[in-house]
């Protein structure tokens, strides 16, 4: 009975609300599509700026190991290796620490200590990378040179003798800077990221899951292993991927400690260069010709691609985890 005609005010407000709703929908849609437009514009601009070297060299730059912009030798292999190597080592160092921190903060530590420590971890994730870089220069590099590197070198020598081989891990001149030092700085930088996000994933595990394991007579470690970590595994994979993304793209801190050498590292003591540090270090000084300049943008494109591939790989991994176990956990 309540027809709109009998109550014009009501109809008006209903129309207004519908219009506002439509406006809200379109506005959010525009913003969301804006992201897509931005990414496309990004890739197009990079491609166009890099097209000189793409046309000139094709994919050959990816496998070429000499970087000498002065004579138009523009191989990107040393930097691709530098990027992947430092990120991989950083992950290997960071994952056990991060999971230990996350488990301790979410499962084991008493609340009065877990809460403040949690804030500190989150705070560490927000420290600007140049600060980590400076710490690397003033603290880590001298410490590596005088203590860690000689230790690793003697271990390497011992292993060489044991296996009658020359293992190219910790060999060569010791400068304190280099691939290993950069990896350690990266690891320290991504530990807070991975820990903080993993902790959230662990916290999201329902209490009933812990009770299920405890009720079967599991200890705290067994409960963590069989129920908590496995329930949260997808969130943890996500945390690791975010950390890896940060490591791959990190520029400033790496630039300050990796030694900036344009050669393929021959051991973990070698100085090296990542794609990001190459661009930061040399773009202004070494883009001597249009071809060389476009090679830097080629490198940037490769970095973007690596990041993209990592993300796709992570998606596939999560998809397979969910499929194999039928999901059920956080996705």
């Amino acid at each position: 009975m309540l027809r709109g005609t009998r109550n014009p005010g009501r109809t008006f407000s209903a129309r207004l609300r519908r219009a506002l709703d439509l406006g809200f929908l379109s506005l959010t849609l525009v913003v969301a599509l804006g992201i897509l437009a931005l990414l496309s514009a990004f890739i197009i601009v990079l491609f166009r700026a890099a097209d000189l070297s793409i046309v000139h060299y094709g994919l050959a730059l990816l496998g070429e190991s000499t970087w000498a912009p002065g004579v138009n030798k523009l191989g990107l292999l040393p930097f691709i290796i530098g990027t992947l190597l430092t990120s991989a080592i950083a992950l290997v160092i960071a994952i056990p620490f991060s999971l230990g921190i996350a488990v301790s903060l979410s499962e084991l530590a008493p609340r009065w200590i877990a809460e403040p420590l949690g804030y500190i971890v989150e705070l560490l994730a927000a420290v600007p990378s140049v600060v980590f870089g400076l710490w690397g220069i003033f603290v880590l590099i001298p410490f590596m040179r005088t203590t860690i590197d000689p230790l690793l070198e003697s271990w390497n020598n011992g292993a060489d003798r044991l296996f009658h081989a020359s293992i190219p891990l910790f060999t060569g001149p010791i400068s304190g800077s280099g691939v290993l030092t950069a990896s350690i700085v990266l690891a320290i930088m991504i530990i807070p990221t991975i820990s903080a996000i993993s902790r959230e994933a662990l916290r999201a595990v329902p209490e009933t899951q812990r009770e299920a394991a405890l009720g079967l007579g599991a200890t705290r470690w067994e409960t963590t292993r069989m129920s908590v970590l496995s329930y949260a595994r997808i969130g943890i994979v996500g945390a690791i991927i975010l950390g890896l993304g940060r490591a791959v793209g990190e520029t400033m801190a790496v630039t300050l400690v990796i030694g900036n050498s344009d050669f393929i590292p021959t051991s973990l003591f070698s100085q090296g260069q990542t794609i990001a540090s190459l661009i930061a270090n040399e773009f202004l000084s070494n883009a001597s010709s249009p071809l060389a300049a476009s090679a830097f943008l080629y490198a940037a494109l490769v970095l973007l691609l690596i990041t993209l591939l990592i993300n796709i790989g992570a998606r596939l991994l999560v998809y397979r985890l969910v499929k194999r176990t039928g999901g059920g956990a956080i996705e």
Binding site: P206, T208, Q209, E211, A212, A213, L214, G215, L216, G217, A218, T219, M226, S227, S230, Y231, R233, T325, G326, G327, G328, A329
Partner: peptide, 21 residues
């Protein structure tokens, strides 16, 4: 407590099977 819980089993309010198993 761990060995106590092995002698005294428990079933909870909400079904809580391990979802990944």
């Amino acid at each position: 407590p761990v060995s106590v819980r092995r002698r005294i089993g428990m079933v909870f309010q909400k079904p809580n099977p391990f979802p990944t198993m």
